[in-house]
Amino acid sequence: MQKSARTVMSKKRQHLREWLIERLLFASAIISVFTTLAILGVLLFEAVGFFQQVSIVEFFTDTRWTPLFVPQHFGILPLVWGTIMVTAIALVVAVPFGLGSAIFLSEYAPEGLRKAVKPVLEILAGVPTVVYGYFALTFVTPWLQNFFPQLNVFNALSAGLVMGVMIIPMVSSLSEDAMLAVPQSFREGAYALGARRHEVALRIVVPSAFSGIVASFILAISRAVGETMIVSMAAGSTARLTLNPFESIQTMTGYITQISLGEAAFGSLEYRTIFSVGLTLFLMVLVINLIGQWVAKRYWKRY
């Protein structure tokens, strides 16, 4: 009799405990949702304050960005353009070298070589971006100045090139994974028709893996757009609309860094620019990621 009373009690306690634990775990899972809401909340809250003083039209159409000078201009185009320029240069490096590496590792390299080389390339992704920034400023720029004396000490080219190297493993790894997922039976069918290795790789494997390959490009773009330290250290802090990669420019992320270091007074208009630029950056990355998902779905080949 004693026993059964005890069992009934501990069963209730047990149920309570189970329920409590589940609630706790749910609470930690909800943190991710909270994070997204918090990001949006913080950005919008301060950005609304910003846009009460600066018109949205001016923000998106003015071609000058000079919040720290008189007269103040708040046109974000130069910052967006700086971001685009550096990203474009980075892609010129990352796409061919990343894809070429992926094709080599997936279709040409023997298994032993692939297993050895792939983690080494991954190290490129693990190097902190301050190291890349240091390299861009102290090595790449002086070296390039040997060939282009007109190259400014801060310029878009060095930052873009180094950023490209940084995102090579992103393109290479994801593209390689996509190519490895292509069934061997496709390759066999092509070889059986008398195709050579480069024809199998370029005409069968790459088109079949196209969805994953494109997804890797888009991911690389979004990473480049959000990258901060390389551009802060090497690209400069002059927001300008120029087509010349030898000049100093400023990206959205570079500006945010600059103003953060300046310790602008909380609540001031200059302080709020952090959030309006941040919001623009956040939305831009969001759109890029959505485009990436759409493109990946569109080109996805089932097999």
Binding site: V33, T257, I274, L281, L286
Partner: peptide, 28 residues
């Protein structure tokens, strides 16, 4: 929604997290 959120958050630039921290933890 939670799963989607986590996947999206993985792609947010780190400086945006910094801005979040500035507005939320440092200030608010």
């Amino acid at each position: 929604f939670i799963r989607l959120n986590i996947a999206n958050l993985a792609g947010v630039p780190s400086i945006v997290y910094g801005i979040l921290g500035l507005g939320l933890f440092v200030q608010a």
